[in-house]
Amino acid sequence: MKPAAYDLTLATSLPDAVAALGAHEGAKAVSGGCSLGPMLNLRLARPSLLVDLRRVEALRALKRSDTHLEIGAGWTHGEIEDGVVPDVTAGLMARVAHGIAYRAVRNRGTIGGSLAHADPAADWVSTMAVLDARLVITGAGGTRLSRLGDFMIAAYTTSLADDEILSAVQVPVLSATARAGYHKVCRKTGEFAQAIGAVVLDREAGLARVVCGAIEAPPVVLEATSAALLKGEPVERVADEEVEAALAGHPASFRAMHRAAVARALNEVGA
């Protein structure tokens, strides 16, 4: 199948892109197009206008503060995988990037595009949740910051207005001793996750966060498990119980895979 007709504008600045999105009913921003492209070909996505962001320099910015690294939304998974984007997350982001789809997709798909698409099974969604990253959103009125939990309302649904662009993510700089765990249950290499467990443990910073992802919904932070992890208490049972509670109503096999994913991610940080 070939896409339904649409117009295309190659934006060169964020204000241009925001203006184009605001001026056209049915306009859609696109970066790598790795999620949107198939939907265009299948004629499920039928935008009137695509605003291509690949030439927007501002989306390729990298800014470092004491506490955070701000990564422009236009960096590709492959660049994060290869370390072109420096890592401040105890290796978590490079490792997650390596596990996204396939190299030819990683060479084109961007972190911002993936997050804006808001597929619950996408790796960056769970990763930003476990890092408690801040998402930088640019609109006509300037920028605002949002956490993943506020940004992603539901599957494929975000708080982005029609004329807003996810322009960057601010990920926290973890301590040198921080550890991260990430386990994805997948039927095939590169396939969408059936279950994700993600863990960050940074004792120096007094931080522990455990996330259960790929739940056909925004990922959930397992608060009790996180607290137990920080205290150094046994987590196995509390994690199981918390996952079971979060996924009540789902089939047993679905719950089992998520329990396993979380347990194995915890295991990676020595919990």
Binding site: L62, K63, R64, D66, E70, R134, M152, Q170, V221
Partner: peptide, 19 residues
């Protein structure tokens, strides 16, 4: 190499970290 920048103001914490 990232550009050094001042951290922007953090967003207000959401009522719950998880939706």
């Amino acid at each position: 190499a990232p550009v050094e920048a001042v951290a922007e103001v953090a967003p207000a914490p959401s009522a719950s970290a998880s939706p």
